[in-house]
Amino acid sequence: MIEQREKYSDLIKSLPNPGLGLGLRSKHFNYILENNPEVDWFEVISENFMDSGGRPRHVLRQLAERYPVVMHGVSLSIGSTDPLNKEYLTKLKLLAEEVKPLWISDHLCWTGVNSLNTHDLLPVVLNEESLKHICNRINQVQDFLERPVVFENPSTYLTFKQSTIHEYGFLRYMTEETGCGLLLDVNNVYVSGFNNDFDPVHYIHQLPHDRIVQMHIAGHQHCGTHIIDTHDRQVVKDVWNLFSLAWQLTGGVATLLEWDGNIPEFDVYHNELLKAKQHMSSILVVDQVTETQEHGEEAVSNPVDFLVNDVVVN
């Protein structure tokens, strides 16, 4: 077990930094295939492709020949008390064999119990019982996939009274106990910090930086009393500042911009990503989007309707 953990840990530390990447969205399929834009790499949502026998899989095959690809999942449900879904894991492994991703990632969350899937990234209780449960499942998943898995800190909108460990500590223990890697979503840290009264700067300082292989950045909606992780707009100044800090602390890792709602044209999406270059040093020369508040009931966390296939009719 210890040998395996060290093997996974070494593999995580040896992963490359492919640069600045974008999420593959069906709206941009044609543009990418026709124009071969100069994007360093693409992140694909695993569940969108693992069952596909049609256009999504066809596009992915072509994309994987041209660009490095990372597989990012939303349904592993590593924190659930349900048994691991072997059918899902088998399909995930088969897809990885075909796509040959740089790495496979998912979230520190649970998505449902009793065989239901809420399709949300629900918060885990952060205590010793939960840590043991999750580490045990990470070991099983990694051994099944025969590779380390990378886990992302989710946006959270509540904390449990039963939690006894801070999230950054929980993530650190996870990496130490299993050899897994981390995907640091700096926007999620900002969102969770505001919602749950913690300092995002302190959080980022406390993480095991040598286990972070990727970062996410994204836009969010500030509702005054709370922030919703909407992935539907530009990245705000405070999140860029956190990115800049994380970039310095990690020494620079693969970075991806998420944009899942109100998805803009490809060049707008790409240009927002390229702003990251100006935040890799401490000298800022870019106009930054400042936070504005939008009150209303319409904001939805983790939008997923982009995950439903866009049927293309001739």
Binding site: T118, H119, L158, I228, E297, V300, S301, V304, D305, V308
Partner: peptide, 14 residues
């Protein structure tokens, strides 16, 4: 309530 509202709104959008 943030989770409760998002659950139904998210799937309704799908």
């Amino acid at each position: 309530d943030i989770y409760r509202y998002s659950y139904i709104a998210r799937l309704r959008a799908c």
